[in-house]
Design a binder for these strands. Structure first.
Length: 966
RNA sequence: GCGGGUGUGGUGAAAUUGGUAGACACGCUAGACUUAGGAUCUAGUGCCGCGAGGCAUGGGGGUUCGAGUCCCUCCACCCGCACCA
């Protein structure tokens, strides 16, 4: 009987579905375990083999935990709002909801083929009104909350209003000491005035911010749609434009997001990335008086943020961001034109370009700041390397201590003050904190790191500066001028935002005819006047960004059909936070920080009982594509000299041609024989070819001819009768024709093979190129396992003979039990630590050894099947049933390791001379140094190295090695 | 620019605590069996060398009896950077 994986997998998938074996209950006496995958965006391209890597890893762990007696929640859904569907709609007129549904259907059929244990009853789709009703509801919660800095948590805005009515502006806390009003004044404010104050406190708030505006397209563009200052599509100019936007006040949570990192099990690099993103720094804000020839009043002040107030006497110039509001009023008449030109230049550049720019650029404003301590006049410059969004948008430049400042000073010939003596060599900046300060007024003689605190105190005393904690993180932009996203449940009336009430939710996306932008950069919704204009006012026309729905989806899986609330408190108390979250590092800072923030807000407001969403995070690596190339050559015939045509040459000829310098000039040529004629090839172009019609490196020439019309009459020059393709590792993408559909692999080799092969490729966390060819090794392994249970089909006198069961009820030998228990230990440990590649190889070793021992004993094989269940559930269930088990293997008892079967009585020691292995010797397991030394020294090989000398030392590490030092 | 990651045979990789480098596979070579082979099995396969042996974990340096693993330094490649999700 053969291993008929197609039948087997189909049979069990249907049975499992019919028996609802993956349905998970919210009530159980078992301990809970929550395994979550980052849900996919259902793109039109479908899944390729790179996507399921993490899904397989989480599926294995879920099944493993189930076998170990846990009630495992392992859901799946779709992050189905997003730009690509809208872009597709713009091009084809098809409604995003339709294409999204189609794509989801494709994804689900692909996922189901791989045999995942998802409880589909719990599926969520972020674009489903039944889901986004609750996204809108949570948005309104954010809108109606503020962060109370006294209690360090989110509270209802109603409480703030109540406080303002009695305390006035002191209720706002010290952070907002700039605004000041009494309770009486507050009560006398108009509604608009009150709302403006409240808006500055809400966790979801509206304000003005800059967007990438493309006049020609009449739309706002995403950063990745802007390349070198022009739109990716069409190459139209893009400028920064101020627009009303919604934001989430994630900065209020900066400290808690940092502290929370201590409590979660993320990789150090992931935590580091989040810390860097939050970018907490301690320093000071210092105000400088400005002296400008422009205004006689000299009343302006320039406030800078610095982490190094100790270097205040080393400031040689100031740099303000080109967006800085002071520029207009301080620029001198002579510098007016230069400044304007520079600002126009910077407007066309993205933040990233500005930071990555190596060429130094900038312009002098003509104004000076006055150092409050020594009265020195410090020129104020403008440069793009200072970003408006960070700190105060202005820095004090200390060239002797900061590399960028130093280069800037050099470039513009600004004299450099040395405050760190011999630490500064005049050739490069030295950012040390260890130097003793010189030329530094009252700080002279102090160690820099000690001067930081003293410097700030002095400035606070004099009222020119104050201690300040700064964050690089900015409040998160929360509106998009797009159609395919959650509409905001907000109506604007007389400049006041009015939230819809909960019973008006969901506010459904209206149908549109056109997906193009609305007027003035507004989103497409602005075009539907009958929807926008309501008796209560004008609707918000932006929609929410992709991360809205994904910031809380892990909660909805717990209680997906609840119509009363987004998740019942009892249910979320049971499932609690996600125990294992698997996804790519690309979400390190965006999605993970947003969902951590939302979780903290919902915790503060009492909706859930935990404030970190994900206890453990496992990052899966990317699977890169392995592209294949054919080489299209232009040739002429040498024999009759005139014929010119195209021909596809095998790789070796391309290599020859390249070697001859073919790449550079088109003069290089090679000559070869083809169909009895000599042809001359002068120009070769590599073309991507679909990897699915290439076996390893050999092209299927018939399929190639069928692939595209232009290849129908293709003629080939072969090597050894084969057409060999070139290869290169690239991103896996449709455009390189290097994507492989998991369904094809499941059809050809089976889901079990596919699952195990993906894991066998390498560590889950590592990126690695895909190679379809290697899958055969894993497939052979499963067939070999099968043959431990069934004999092969064969032929007898020309007639096929069915294979027969070969398993027996005989008692296992000690040797067989040793193999089994070694495997139990290895698989259990490797699965627990997500080392699935080594687990797969341990299975291979196990089956190889059992086959060598001719072990067909049920007693042993049965336990191997249970171990295998998380990895290859179909074949495990099939053989489990075949050997006579009535219940499913999915709920079998996990094998228990018994060390007594694996203990050894002796150990083979490596014997090294000076650290180099020369021989091995076997000693009893409890042998001591004194026991082994004489034997080692008497050994022939050791003697030949000693050449009669006494060894200097013999290193003996019990159960490890022996090293003889000469 | 900032931040993160990765470099080991022809290929994917293993080596869990500083202790036999290359397990397990792919590919390749030879052979067996077979009507057939894209089935299965056997043997071989890091590089150089007839051999003894030498050289090998991106390059260079260091610590150690012993380094893929620890330290310093340099190089190469990949990913993210706030409106892709």
């Amino acid at each position: 009987m053969e291993y008929k994986f197609r039948e087997i997998e189909k049979k069990w998938q249907e049975k499992w579905k019919a028996d609802k074996v993956y349905q998970v209950s919210n009530e159980s006496t078992k301990p809970k375990y929550y395994v979550l995958d980052m849900f996919p965006y259902p793109s039109g391209a479908g899944l390729h083999v790179g996507h399921p890597l993490g899904y397989i890893a989480s599926d294995i762990y879920s099944r493993y935990k189930r076998l170990k007696g846990f009630n495992v929640l392992h859901p799946m859904g779709f992050d189905s709002f997003g730009l690509p569907a809208e872009q597709y709609a713009l091009e084809t007129g098809q409604h995003p909801a339709e294409t999204t549904q189609k794509n989801i259907a494709t994804f689900k059929s692909q996922l189901d083929k791989i045999g995942f244990c998802y409880d589909w009853e719990r599926e969520v789709q972020t674009s489903d009104p039944n889901y986004y009703k609750w996204t809108q509801k949570i948005f309104l919660e954010l809108y109606s909350s503020w962060y109370n800095s006294k209690t360090q948590k989110a509270e209802s805005i109603m409480q703030l209003i109540a406080l303002l009515e009695v305390e006035g502006s002191t209720a706002l806390g010290i952070e907002h000491s700039a605004v000041s009003f009494t309770a009486e004044q507050w009560n006398a404010f108009s509604e608009l005035e009150k709302e403006e104050i409240l808006m500055k406190r809400r966790l979801a708030f509206s304000s003005f911010g800059e967007v990438n505006w493309c006049e020609a397209l009449g739309t706002v563009l995403a950063n990745d749609e802007v390349v070198n200052g022009v739109s990716e599509r069409g190459g139209h100019p893009v400028i920064k434009k101020k627009m009303r936007q919604w934001y989430l006040r994630i900065t209020a949570y900066a400290d808690r997001l940092l502290q929370g990192l201590e409590t979660v099990d993320f990789s150090d690099s992931m935590k580091e990335m989040q810390r860097n993103w939050i970018g907490r720094s301690e320093g000071a804000e210092i105000s400088f008086k400005v002296h400008s020839p422009q205004s006689a009043a000299d009343s302006k002040e320039l406030t800078v943020y610095t982490t190094r107030p100790d270097t205040i006497f080393g400031v040689d110039f100031m740099v303000v961001a080109p967006e800085h509001e002071l520029i207009e009023s301080i620029t001198s008449a002579e510098q007016q034109q230069a400044v304007e030109e520079y600002i126009t230049y910077v407007k066309s550049r993205s933040d990233r370009e500005r930071q990555a720019e190596k060429n130094i650029s900038g312009v002098f404003t003509g104004a000076y700041a006055i150092n409050p301590f020594d009265g020195k006049q410090i020129p104020i410059w403008i440069s793009e390397y200072v970003l408006a969004g960070y700190g105060t948008g202005a820095i004090m430049a200390v060239p002797c201590g900061d590399e960028r400042d130093f280069k800037f000073a050099q470039h513009f010939n600004i004299p450099i003050t040395n405050i760190i003596g011999e630490y500064f060599n005049g050739k490069e900046a030295n950012p040390t904190k260890e130097a003793i300060l010189e030329n530094s007024g009252f700080l002279n003689g102090l160690l820099m790191k000690d001067a930081i605190g003293g410097g700030i105190s002095k400035m606070e005393e004099l009222g020119i500066g104050k201690r300040k904690v700064n964050y690089k993180m900015r409040d998160a932009g929360f509106s998009r001028q797009r159609y395919w996203g959650e509409p905001f449940p907000i109506i604007w009336k007389d400049g006041i935002a009015k939230p819809l009430s909960e019973n008006e939710l969901p506010l459904e996306l209206p149908h549109v005819e056109k997906y193009g932008p609305g007027p003035e950069g507004e989103g497409p919704l602005a075009n539907i006047t009958e929807w926008v204009n309501t008796p209560e006012g004008r609707r918000e026309t932006s929609t929410m960004p992709g991360y809205a729905g994904s910031s809380w989806y892990f909660l909805r899986y717990m209680d997906p059909h609840n119509v009363e609330t987004f998740v019942d408190r009892k249910v979320s108390d049971y499932w609690n936070s996600v125990d294992l979250y698997i996804g790519g590092t690309e979400h390190a800072v965006g999605h993970l920080l947003y969902s951590r923030m939302w979780t903290k807000v919902l915790y503060d407001l009492g909706y859930i009982g935990f404030d970190e969403p994900f206890k453990k995070l496992l990052n899966q690596g990317m699977i890169q594509g392995s592209s294949r190339f054919v080489y299209r050559a232009a040739y002429s015939s040498i024999n009759d000299g005139i014929e010119i045509g195209l021909i596809y040459v095998s790789k070796t000829y391309y290599d020859q041609w390249l070697k001859g310098g073919g790449d550079n000039d088109n003069k290089a040529f090679i000559t070869l024989e083809h169909n009895g004629k000599y042809i001359r090839i002068s120009h070769i172009v590599p073309l991507h070819v679909d990897v699915n019609i290439v076996d390893g490196y050999e092209l299927d020439r018939e399929e190639f001819k069928k692939w595209k019309l232009e290849f129908a009459d293709a003629d080939f020059v072969l090597e050894d009768g084969k057409y060999i393709c070139g290869s290169e590792t690239e991103k896996m993408s449709k455009r390189y024709f290097n994507t492989v559909d998991p369904r094809v692999l499941c059809d050809n080799y089976g889901a079990d093979t596919f699952r195990m092969y993906e894991m066998f490729l390498g560590p889950v966390e590592a990126s690695k190129p895909w190679d379809t060819k290697g899958i055969e090794g894993v497939h052979r392994f499963l067939k070999k396992l099968w043959r431990l249970f069934y004999s092969d089909a064969s032929f007898n006198q020309g007639k096929p003979v069915e294979g027969k069961p070969v398993w027996t009820n005989e008692q296992a030998t000690p040797e067989e039990l040793k193999v089994l228990h070694k495997t139990i230990k290895k698989i259990d440990e490797d699965t627990e630590r997500f080392s699935y590649n080594t687990a797969v190889s341990a299975f291979m070793v196990c089956v190889n050894e059992l086959a060598d021992l001719k072990c067909n004993k049920k007693e042993v094989l049965e336990q191997v099947l249970v171990l295998l269940t998380p990895y290859a559930p179909h074949i495990a269930e099939e053989l489990w049933a075949a050997i006579g088990n009535a219940t499913s293997i999915l709920d079998a008892d996990y094998p228990v390791y018994n060390a007594s079967y694996t203990t050894e009585s002796s150990k083979e020691y490596p014997v090294s001379i000076n650290g180099k292995l020369r021989t091995t010797l076997t000693f009893p397991i409890d042998a001591e140094q004194k026991d082994v030394e004489p034997v080692v020294l008497a050994n022939e090989i050791v003697q030949s190295w000693l050449k009669g000398q006494e060894p200097k030392k013999i290193v003996f590490v019990k159960n490890r090695m022996i090293n003889v030092v000469i």
